[in-house]
């Protein structure tokens, strides 16, 4: 669906994106992960046809962004971080207008409008003036304007920024619903959030793609293993003995809380089933076991640290990315 080769984008003499290459399949949800200023938005803006690449090629569904930008934009729906909305218009009026501007006939827009309202959970706000809506609703109107013309690719730049926890959960549902008809690209710097929504992650740092893969692939490639938080009933010494002897465990930290022991465990790879069996066989009473929250944080920091420190390393891509290319 999307193929990017050697994409480079300069602003003056500053290279916001350097030699980025990747492929995205049809109906895939891909997350662009990076710190502020990493180049995520620039890549998305080039893919959306808002900016032209300084070098390299970008094709969406076989259409070259530099050769036929108008045709490309017809196939793409774009939501920037701040939704571009005319505050004086009513929601349905605005969506009708956007649909026609994006090349649909009035009949097509009328047919699509109820579905889009439903997908974005806007039905109850159809006749409200946009300027009077809450931030969460405005984000949803932003998504609705991006999909009203039924695009093949939907690009969402930081779709959850500024939303409260309830709105984030709702937004996650909306984004997943888009997958039924479109390829979805999302950028975010909220690591835990991106992992819950996307099929694959591209990690961007200083304009380069430093890694690419699923959360597990990224984690495995760095040898960071799987992190678990385990609460067991037993004595601290007994726990220490079991974990110390285990060949599955790469590292651990223990803390006693009365009769319970809290253990933060890092496994050598994804061997959660074997690890649980080992604990049971050792006679430790498992009270609770869960994946550690924010698993992506250490992965992300590790990847960006590798790209940041020595000058020579900056141009090298992470092995995962090479594998994906191969």
């Amino acid at each position: 669906m999307i193929e990017v080769k050697g994409l480079t984008r300069y602003y003056g003499s500053f290279a916001a994106v350097k030699d980025a290459s990747f492929k995205i399949a049809d109906r895939e949800i891909v997350g662009f992960l990076g710190l502020n200023g990493a180049g995520k938005s620039t890549i998305l803006r080039v893919l959306a046809g808002l900016q032209m690449p300084s070098a390299g090629t970008v094709t969406v569904g076989g259409i070259d962004a530099t050769v036929a930008p108008d045709a490309l934009r017809k196939r793409i729906g774009f939501l920037p971080e701040d939704p571009p909305l005319y505050r004086e218009m009513r929601v349905s009026e605005f969506l009708r207008w956007v649909g026609q501007v994006k090349g649909c006939t009035r009949a097509q827009v009328e047919a699509e409008l109820p579905k889009v309202m439903e997908t974005c959970r806007l039905t109850d706000a159809a006749n409200q003036v946009i300027g009077e809506l809450s931030h969460g609703y405005r984000k949803r109107v932003g998504i609705a304007q991006a999909i009203i013309h039924r695009p093949e690719v939907v690009i969402l730049d930081e779709p959850i920024s500024g939303l409260d926890p309830r709105q984030i959960v709702e937004m996650r549902g909306v984004v997943r619903a888009l997958k039924s008809f479109a390829t979805v690209l999302i950028s975010s710097h909220i690591l835990s959030e991106i992992a819950q929504t996307v099929d694959r992650i591209l990690v961007i740092h200083r304009g380069r793609i430093v890694a690419e893969g699923t959360e597990q692939q990224l984690s495995g490639s760095l040898g960071t293993g799987t992190r678990l938080t385990v609460v067991v009933r037993g004595k601290l010494d007994a726990c220490e003995e079991v974990l110390g002897k285990s060949e599955l465990v790469e590292g651990y930290e223990l803390a006693a809380q009365g009769e319970l022991v809290n253990a933060s465990v890092t496994l050598r790879g994804d061997k959660r089933e074997e690890f649980v069996r080992e604990l049971v066989e050792a006679g430790l009473g498992i009270r609770q076991i869960q994946d550690s929250m924010g698993e992506l944080e250490p992965i992300f920091l590790e990847l960006t640290r590798a790209a940041m420190a020595p000058a020579g390393l900056e141009s090298k891509q992470h092995p995962i990315h090479k594998e994906a290319d191969a």
Partner: peptide, 13 residues
């Protein structure tokens, strides 16, 4: 107001 993005991302020339 940032609404220029809406027009820039549309197929209008």
């Amino acid at each position: 107001t940032g609404t220029i993005v809406l027009l820039d991302s549309s197929p209008l020339n």
